[in-house]
Design a binder for these strands. Structure first.
Lengths: 277, 277
DNA sequence: CTGGTGCGTTAACACATGTTAGGAAGAAGG
DNA sequence: CCTTCTTCCTAACATGTGTTAACGCACCAG
């Protein structure tokens, strides 16, 4: 399997073969699989491992005393769950599995060792962290200044890009594993209103959501509906149009980029499936 | 003047005199002052300096096409505005002055040099970054799962703690430099409704807000109103009750801590004013 | 003193979203 | 095949928050 972590970090930094090899080694640590709905890491836990999502979907979430739950970030394959363990003593939120999810458990020392060895990797990890923060900021903007339709459109558009980046959104179709209730927890909207909003997006011909699979029928329309702006994901190399990675999501972050590398979604696996070692 | 940055980072790590001296040197770089309302750093900018707030109040904010503005974080004296410049190419949001604000402009190379020299400092900076993220997460929880009264109470309670930490909230009174409109931008509420909510908090006897100064009349009541939970600020040493720092905000994050170090707010300057070199 | 200008304050009304409740459709399991 | 459970969907009603608009007050400049 392609190294998803590498595919993600490559959006920012161009690794050499040695570095890639080291990254690949990380994937050889033991994995663990979690059923849908089960916690992967609990708030308050001291965790000795770094969790990397391989398959499925996880979320950062927080539960208030009154039982309300707020999802604060979605973690797709290739994402790290808990870089904070390097510094902060305890998790300040839960990581939960929103679908059957498999993670690699990388001992913290191992990754820490790698980091001091390769400062490039250190930089890449900082990038990943700061990008996470940027996504959080975007999430806040969403809640404060967007209505429900814009919010959900935005979430979908962001997920499309992120699945593209890891090569799993051919034809603008990708796994969308959230229930409407969970979508509500992510956006701060009730599931009833989520439903209303989905109907609307469907009737506008923007999306097709069925069987946990989302197809974006009109990427331009969806971007517009989302008031999407590309900068916050900090896809440095994509924006710079580095050939190696820009085919994945280039047309999404910058429509004018299309044509050049159109319909490359299908080629991604051949391009990168073997390019990670 | 006490080194505000040191006071803040001390919440996490105990520096030795040499390290403190180096931190103090950072404050000797040129400062710049910004009028209320003026931008300090603009979205999209490539910035060669790290900005450290010395006095006043700044905010991370984002403006949408339709003119709506969302404030995503408040920066009080001692806070760094743009650590991201080490890694990300451009700012993905604005930093604006909400009051007349003075910043030190530390050349990025200088701080970067310091970081490789002292890994403790590196850790402290990571701490600061990850804590920022944690605050963002909290902010999201606020928007999604709290009503206006809880949100505003929460913001006030957090600010009380943060001003305590830098020794500027004696008697639970501290500068509260936000207009109601800005409070609205921070919480995603209209200024009209902010006003309604403030009236309510006043009539409940929780706060006294006048002349840009906030006095918390009932810390317990406010904490309760805010559904506040301490963990997210990651005040490691405060929670551990390290004497050196726990007097500042200990009773706020853990009410049982009171008595032990009550009314220490006034002593803070004598304890730490000279303790930073 | 006088006219701005920004901020706080209220009031009346509109509407997006929440709440509650129940039924339909599909998946899982015996 | 039937039962059970989850998720999706819809309807009627309730309400928190937004909108608009107007007035007062403090502060400042001239």
């Amino acid at each position: 399997m392609a190294n998803l972590l590498t595919m993600k970090l490559e959006q920012f930094i161009d690794f050499d073969p040695g570095e890639r090899a080291r990254l690949d080694e990380l994937l050889s640590y033991p994995t663990e699989t979690y059923e849908r709905g089960k916690p992967i890491i609990r708030e308050g836990a001291k965790v000795p491992n770094i969790y990397l999502v391989l398959t499925g979907l996880a979320a950062r979430s927080k539960t208030l005393r009154n039982g309300e739950r707020q999802i604060m970030a979605l973690l797709v394959p290739g994402d790290l769950c808990d870089v904070e363990v390097f510094v902060l003593e305890r998790m300040d939120h839960d990581i939960i599995a929103l679908a059957e999810t498999t993670c690699v458990l990388i001992p913290a020392e191992v990754l820490e060792g790698l980091l001091s060895e390769f400062s490039k990797l250190t930089k890449a990890l900082w990038w990943s962290t700061m990008t996470d923060s940027a996504v959080l900021r975007q999430w806040i903007v969403g809640h404060g200044a967007r209505d429900s339709r814009e919010q959900i459109a935005h979430l979908m558009y962001e997920m499309l890009i992120r699945y593209r980046i890891i090569g799993q959104a051919a034809n603008d179709t990708f796994p969308f594993l959230l229930t409407q209730e969970e979508l509500g927890d992510a956006t701060g909207i009730t599931s009833v209103h989520v439903n209303r909003t989905l109907q609307q997006l469907r009737s506008e011909g923007l999306i097709d959501l069925r069987n946990r699979t989302l197809t974006v029928l009109d990427t331009d329309g969806l971007r517009k509906a989302a008031q999407y702006e590309s900068a916050y994901l900090h896809l440095t190399r994509t924006e710079r149009r580095d050939e190696e990675v820009s085919g994945r999501a280039g047309d999404l972050v910058d429509p004018s980029h299309r044509g050049a590398v159109r319909d490359t979604a299908e080629k991604i696996s051949s391009l990168f499936g073997s390019g990670t070692s």
